[in-house]
Every structure is written in structure tokens, then in C-alpha cells.
Design a protein around this nucleic acid. Sequence first.
RNA 1: GCGGGAGUAGCUCAGUCGGUUAGAGCGCGGGAUUGUGGAUCCUGAGGUCGCGGGUUCAAUUCCCGUCUUCCGCCCCA
Length: 433
Amino acid sequence: MGDVLPVGQKQLIYQSEKWVWLRRAYDEWTMAHGYRYIETPIVEEIDLFKRTSGETSDIVNKEMYLVRRSSQDGDEEKGFHLCLRPEGSAGVSRAVVEHGLARSASGLKFYYMAPMFRSERPQKGRYRQHTQIGAEVFKEESPAADVEVIALLYNFYRRIGLEQLELNINSVGDPNCRPAYREALIKFLEQFKDKMSEDSRARMYSNPMRCLDSKDRKDQELFADAPMMLEYLNEECSEHFAEVKMGLEKLGIPFTVNPRLVRGLDYYTKTAFEVLCKSLDGAIQTIGGGGRYDGLVELLGGPPTPAVGFGSGIERVLLALDSQNIEIPGYPAPRALIAYLDNGVKYDALKMAEELRSQGHAIEFVYRAKNLGKQLSHANKLGANFAVIVGGVEWERGEVSLKNLITRDERAVKIEDVSKILATAAGANSPML
RNA sequence: GCGGGAGUAGCUCAGUCGGUUAGAGCGCGGGAUUGUGGAUCCUGAGGUCGCGGGUUCAAUUCCCGUCUUCCGCCCCA
């Protein structure tokens, strides 16, 4: 029996340094944009996602992990009220509403890196538990926010070395212009009612826009001449979209307008976008996506609050990096290993290691060593440049033996000088002092 | 949620047409070197053959279920 919600061992165990590296890179990048880290609960009310993603969405219908809460006397409350969150935006928006943040000053910019859960058949790049990095901007209706959010995501990918990126954008309108389009689209679809795929027929009235990105070839042919949302945008949405495009051009971010791009979630308005990485297999090329969701905060009981954001699965980002053979720095090698000649000075050595660590050095230590050779061998394996050998006559004189593992030079130094020497002897090949 | 392949040591994999103590390479521990490392040689540990059930005198091997994993859908990140 494996983990209940396996993430993929290779990501978790064998590539942990890649996760650490990616997380740091994302922290740095979002902070450079002035975003603040936010953490929201993994478990949320089911209702939150029913209201935001939509009752008819696949996420709610067949991919939700339901959680039943038990009361203290052991009786289980009837029904399922809770679930493991399937995505990030709804939870952040709920937090914004609950803490009254939407009423505070502008400049509400948040980022997160957090696990998401979807109960589906696992496959490469599609896991029941996956981790998303995301960012959300609230209280900002300017297209500049859309542009910045897209730039943050796209340039993050570039920054970590990814190539073969493709940015697709679209506008899905707003509650003012979408109803007319919806009506026109349904009218168009109805003429193919008998010919279209079952999936499309099921969605035709509940979520007709989803029919447009049907993977069914026959559907694609049938719907080739379908009316597009872009043709029905009102003046406000149209101007907004134009400014987003202009902004992206100005920032030198290449994009393609894809009128069939439809986000799976109901709360998106105006801008929708996704980033593909073409070096990945087709089914998992989408590494990030998002858009504007001006109606979400109000839907959750807050004041009308425009918002824009994205989510991106880091397991896929790591796969994308792999697919392009991009080297990621591993854990840094320790600066030195503190070795001891006999157990009598073992804790003197460990104490010295702690002191050097507190002075900013990365120090290794072997808990149980039979002889010095094993310790040096270990230092070697870890890539340490120095070994500090504690014990013997040097120790009694208040000295240790400092050995450069590259040059094999070794000499006695005063204990209080070790930190300084480790700090000044810079690179692997530089001589001691 | 649907269809198909796979699961044997920490890792990569052999093998068993059902039959005594299931193997290799790498990795790991110990030694040759009792205060000096990357090579070499010697040596050792490590497996309920994914889990549960069935057939059988006997199952790691055959059958069923289940979980995990990979592939194709659905969908998405």
C-alpha cells in the first residue's frame, strides 16, 4: 500500500533539491513584484467550490475528495461538508472576504505554493495531489494588472530556463455581454444536436462554451464556424482586451489569441490565458493558466472586487525542465567536515561544528565513526573542501588540524582561527590563506 | 470515471513452462590501512517476489480482486 494520495516519489524524494530551488526562485520572483505569501486551509467547505467552479464542472462533479467530519461522541455528521481543495483561487478569495481585506487599501497581491487535490486516474504529470504555485491580485481592474500577472508567470518560466513556451490568451467577456453570446452559441449548437459527441450534448446548455474546446474531432469540424466570444464583447471588455494585448507587446511577451480558449471554471471574466510548454507531451503541455475573475469575491459575500491570478503545477514545471535537460543546482556541498580522532573529543568536535554553523558555515559531522579514514571518505563523498580534525596533541595545545581536501595540505591552526580561514579560503581550488 | 501494459534487494533489472537456501550490477556496512579520503582486492548485511483472496500436495510463478505505476481517453496544472 503506497501513500493514500501519492505525489510521485521521484518528485518528492529524488528531486527534493529541485523543489527547494524552485520554491526559492518563486519566492524571490514574486517578492520582487511586491506580492505577499499567503497560506490558506487545505480543507474547505464543498460549497465554496460549488459556487466558484460551478456545479457542472468536472472538478466538482467527479474530481473532489470529500471529507466527512466526526463529532466528539463518535457520531458522524450527516453528509459531506468539507473537501480537499482542488485549486487555489477560491480559497484565497474566501480568505480575502473573511478577513475583510477587500475593504482595506489597494495593493492586495498574494502568492502561494500549496498542495491541491483531484481524485482522478493518476498519470505522468497528472497527480491526485499536486502542488501549485500561484499569484492573485485583488481590487485592481486595470488591464495593467492582467499584463503584470501574465508577465510574472511567463517571465518566471523564462527565468528558470524554460524555452518553447507558448502563451495563449482570450477574453471570455463579462456578465453583461456573455448572455447574448451564450444564447447565440446555443442556437448555433442546437443545429448539430444529433451529430455532436455525448460530452458536448451534455454540456450544451450547462456550459456551452466548453463545447468549443472539445477534443472530439467531429465536434471540431461541426463547430468550426461557431460564433466566438470575441465577436460579442461589449465596449468595456473589448477595450480591456485590446489594452492587455498592447501591454504584452510592450513587454515583449509573445502571445497567440486563441478564441477557443475557455477556462474550465465559471468565475473567470474578461482575460483568460494559459501557458504551454511544447517540449512536453501533448496532454500535459499546459503548465500554467489563469485569468480575471471579477465576480468571485462578490459571489463569496464580499464587496464587488475585481481580481486576476493564475495557478501553475510545479510537478509539470519540473517535468518541463527535465524535458529540456535544464541543469538545476543541487544542494550546496558542505564547507567542511569536523572529524574527531577518538570518542573522547567527539562532543568537543560536535560543539565546534555548531559554533562554526552559527558563524554561517555549512558543516558536516559523522555521528558514529570508527576511524578518521571513514570520516574523510564521507567528507569527500559530500564534496566538502576542508576537514577539521579534532584530537591528539594539537587539541591539547588549543589547535586543530585543518586539511584541505583538494590539495591534501594539512597543518595545525588555532581553534579560534578556523572560522576566519574557512571564510576567506574561497573556492574549491584556492589555497588555504 | 473508462481501456491497456507493469510491480522481484535502497536503485536498475535478471529469473522461476508451479517444486529445497530467489540472483547480478550499482549503492550500503566491515576489513586489508589501530591518526588520514576518491583506486583495487576481500567480505558482510539487506527480499513476507506490491497487498488480499482463490485453485493446488505445493503459488513469487496460474486465476480473481485491490493498490501503486506507466500509456491512451475524459479532464486538467
